[in-house]
């Protein structure tokens, strides 16, 4: 069922990672991604993997859940790996299939690309969405983007839109399931028939879903207006972010790790440069 998708879901908890300032988490995740893309060689990738696993361990989230959430990108992974094996021509030839040579360079690139994507997706999940509630996430983002207010960029409005969008994802999923159940009770079948028949079977789900979404949006707008919501001007927050010693140490440790990864990537002869 749709509900079982743990993609981008928040797992409430009280681990070290959960307690980190969302701004720190956003910055660290972004740096993590950048470092993933510029690092090269075995040792840097090994360090990044160990780093991620330590974070996963610190979150106290069952590691099986994290692997399960990677399932949707499995096809992408296989596709990337296969493509890289066949199209990279460097190093020595391992063996040939017909006219296509499989080279060491190809295999290595495929492995690194796969590891890179897995780390990227798992890292974003673990450091951001799994351990940060959507509200904290958008509040953090708003705070990080607030300098843009100077050039009249609607930061608050943008983050409010994001909050609302994130807030309604589970609601809409739940609603879709309800409507599907209702139409199934009237004999609709979503799993059989040709592609066109299946697409047609979705009309009885999509029409009510859209109508309800618009109705909800109207209700919400009215409710916000009733409480005198008028954008970000002069608005104060209930939750004010303050950096704790935990945040500072997390930041320092990560920066040290990331810097060393980059230094190893570009100076030492440890890794095989690809």
């Amino acid at each position: 069922m749709i509900k079982d998708v743990s993609l981008g879901q928040y797992f409430p908890g009280n681990s070290v990672i959960h307690r980190l300032d969302p701004r720190i988490k956003i910055i660290l995740t972004m740096t993590f991604i950048v470092v993933l893309f510029i690092c090269r060689g075995f040792i840097p990738y090994a360090i990044m993997t160990v780093f991620l696993f330590s974070v996963i361990f610190a979150t106290k989230i069952n590691i099986r859940l994290i692997f399960k959430s990677l399932k949707p990108i499995l096809i992408l992974l296989i596709f990337t790996a296969v493509l890289n094996i066949f199209y990279t021509k460097s190093g020595t030839v391992l063996f040939s299939i017909g006219t296509i040579d499989i080279t060491t360079g190809g295999v290595l690139t495929a492995v690194f690309m796969t590891v890179r994507i897995v780390l990227l997706v798992a890292g974003t999940f673990v450091m951001l969405t799994y351990t940060t509630s959507p509200i904290m996430l958008t509040d953090g983002l708003e705070s990080l983007l607030s300098p843009l207010k100077k050039i009249k960029f609607p930061v608050h409005e943008l983050s409010m839109m994001m909050s609302i969008a994130l807030r309604f994802i589970p609601t809409l999923i739940e609603e879709t399931e309800k409507i599907m159940s209702a139409q199934k009770s009237r004999g609709a079948s979503f799993e059989t028939g040709s592609l066109i028949q299946r697409a047609k079977a979705l009309v009885p789900v999509l029409v009510p879903l859209f109508i309800n979404a618009f109705r909800r949006a109207e209700d919400l707008a009215l409710a916000m207006e009733c409480r005198c919501y008028r954008g970000g001007e002069n608005r104060v927050r209930m939750r004010v972010f303050k950096l704790s010693s935990l945040d500072i140490s997390a930041l320092c440790i990560s920066i040290i790790i990331f810097t060393s990864v980059i230094i190893i990537s570009y100076t030492s002869s440890f890794g095989v440069v690809i």
Binding site: K178, I179, S181, A182, Q183, S185, R186, G187, V207, P208
Partner: peptide, 29 residues
């Protein structure tokens, strides 16, 4: 699948499942 025609289930707030252009068509679904 055939059981669903024998055991009719009206879910909570069923009015949110209507989708057709006319009442007739919706009942006929």
């Amino acid at each position: 699948h055939s059981i669903r025609f024998k055991v009719g289930l009206v879910l909570q707030y069923p009015e949110y499942q209507l989708f057709e252009e006319t009442v007739y068509k919706d009942i006929a679904y």
